[in-house]
């Protein structure tokens, strides 16, 4: 399968993202290609302190790997197999949610009459 190219977004991410939401976005952004810290900051709309904390956690937890040694302040990150596993779990959650809504009409009727 051809890896997707993550393009810069035409819309801004929500300003009130939780750290769990930021982790998913970081894992997803680096799953196909290695990304620099500045690329991640620019495209995910994260501040320096915030991204440092998130990257520290993801690297320490083994979900991210630093592909190159830091050279002149440039850091390149990639999602590890362990990180892909975590992302898979998230996608399973999403898939379950998007495929298990067939009984909502019955619930709507119950709510309206109840």
């Amino acid at each position: 399968m051809k890896p997707p190219t993550i393009r810069p977004r035409s819309w801004t991410p929500g300003p009130r993202r939780t750290k769990y939401e930021r982790w998913v976005e970081l894992l997803e952004a680096c799953v196909w290609e290695s990304r620099t810290q500045s690329w991640l900051m620019r495209h995910l709309g994260l501040k320096t302190q915030m991204i440092k904390e998130d990257l520290d956690f993801l690297v320490d937890a083994g979900l991210f790997e630093q592909v190159d040694e830091p050279e002149a302040g440039i850091y390149v990150f990639k999602t590890t197999e362990k990180g892909r596993g975590a992302l898979d779990q998230f996608y399973t959650l999403v898939t379950q949610f998007f495929t298990s809504g067939h009984d909502s009409k019955r619930h709507a009727v119950l709510l309206l009459i109840g």
Binding site: M1, P4, R9, P13, G14, R16, R17, V24, E25
Partner: peptide, 18 residues
């Protein structure tokens, strides 16, 4: 149209959370 993995979906979900 182009691929099976949809990167924007995650961000869309988080926008709904917001």
């Amino acid at each position: 149209d182009e691929r099976h993995v949809v990167p924007g979906l995650t961000s869309y979900i988080f926008l709904i959370f917001d």
